[in-house]
């Protein structure tokens, strides 16, 4: 009987200790981290060229409208992660004739030089889930001889991937002087993107 009592007490001791270790709740924490770096501001010219076609000289100054832009547009990506906004400007060189001679693009008077009428005649779209709010094009006439801003995103906008496409085939105009030499002419049009919005 004495031995039985001892064994019983040992069993009870195990039971009590186990109960004391009952778990209520145990937690462990760890940090989760990530670093994001700027993917920069990028732009690509899509389509083109601007077609002014053929023109028969007639002895007086003549204004020539573009006859097609061949899907000309820009793909713009703002992956800066800054929200600073951006601006795009445009500038064209004089039209150079193969074999010599040129047609100036400088605007020296009303309806002279090389002009872009209403860059707002364009579609502006953005990849989902971005928004085009705050992104707009200049509705005025652009002098192509100067580096003029025609498209911009206000601060806090313009984040993501945007697609600007000219929707009119006749937005460009060139004044052809009466004394231009017959031949083929080419101008180089350069688009430049910069950080931050800039007034039109």
């Amino acid at each position: 009987m004495a031995h039985f009592r001892t064994t019983l007490m040992a069993c009870m001791a195990v039971t009590i200790l186990s109960t004391n270790q009952a778990m209520a709740q145990v937690s462990g924490s760890t940090p989760a981290t990530i670093t994001l770096t700027s993917g920069g501001l990028q732009m690509a010219v899509i389509g083109g060229p601007i077609e002014l076609g053929s023109f028969a000289l007639n002895g007086v100054d003549a204004q020539r409208n573009s006859i097609g832009v061949n899907g000309l547009g820009l793909d713009i990506t703002d992956a800066t992660g800054s929200g600073a906004g951006w601006n795009v400007s445009v500038q064209a060189t004089d039209f150079i004739r193969s074999g010599g001679g040129s047609i100036p693009v400088a605007n020296v008077g009303p309806n002279t030089g090389f002009r872009w009428n209403n860059p707002n005649l364009a579609s502006i779209t953005v990849d989902s889930p971005g928004t085009t709010t705050g992104v707009s094009a200049n509705p005025a006439q652009i002098d192509m001889a100067s580096n003029r801003v025609f498209l911009h995103a206000l601060a806090g906008s313009g984040i993501g991937k945007f697609h600007y496409r000219i929707t009119s085939s006749t937005p460009f105009q060139l004044m052809i002087p009466y004394n231009a030499l017959a031949g083929s002419y080419t101008s180089t049009v350069t688009f430049t993107i910069g950080s931050g919005p800039s007034s039109f």
Binding site: T30, T33, T35, T37, S38, T77, A79, G160
Partner: peptide, 11 residues
């Protein structure tokens, strides 16, 4: 830590 490292933004 549970680090996702460095990721470059794409837009």
């Amino acid at each position: 830590s549970l680090s996702f490292g460095t990721v470059t933004l794409t837009g």
